[in-house]
């Protein structure tokens, strides 16, 4: 079973980047569609809607960061892979799950909130700060998940 230790750890890293990346792509895509709708009517609102579109993109970066840290911890990036037991592999795999799953869902929900925010910008452009704040609130949970993943990875020996 120990031969699967490294494979499990790498799978965790891949899922962190993959799922969080999918969530961000979905979220950014949704906001982009809404933003394009507003820009088709009023191109001067570009800078305001761009900030909203960027917000759901951070989860993908958190997933990437987690994946890089994990791969670095187990020596994959350094060129010298550290042998891991099955149990250690599972530990690394599970360490990556918070940002993988929370990243996926929080990016989609943040995208939804940002789409609603684009509606605010369309009708009341002076209120875009409130739209950004509402969407940014969802970010909290992605940051918490990132912290848990990173701290767990660093604490594993």
């Amino acid at each position: 079973m120990d031969q699967y230790g490294v494979a499990l750890a790498i799978s965790g890293a891949i899922l962190a980047a993959l799922l969080a990346g999918i969530g961000s792509a979905r979220g950014v895509g949704m906001v982009g569609e809404a933003a394009a709708g507003v820009l088709a009517e009023d191109p001067s609102k570009f800078s305001k809607v761009l900030i909203l579109q960027l917000l759901p993109g951070t989860q993908g970066l958190y997933g990437l960061l987690t994946a890089v840290l994990l791969l670095s911890q187990i020596g994959v990036l350094g060129g010298e892979v550290i042998p891991l037991t099955f149990s250690q592999g599972i530990q690394y795999f599970m360490a990556a799950m918070p940002i993988a799953l929370v990243g996926l869902f929080s990016a989609i929900y943040q995208g939804r909130t940002a789409v609603a925010g684009v509606g605010i910008v369309a009708k009341k452009p002076d209120q875009n700060g409130k739209a950004i704040t509402l969407a940014a609130m969802v970010e909290t949970y992605a940051i918490l998940a990132l912290l848990v993943s990173v701290l767990t990875i660093f604490s594993l020996k």
Partner: peptide, 21 residues
Amino acid sequence: MSMKETAYINAVARIRFNELS
């Protein structure tokens, strides 16, 4: 969230702008 719902994202944003008129 269904695909059908998200298909209207762009249209809804344009409607929001047109509601101003």
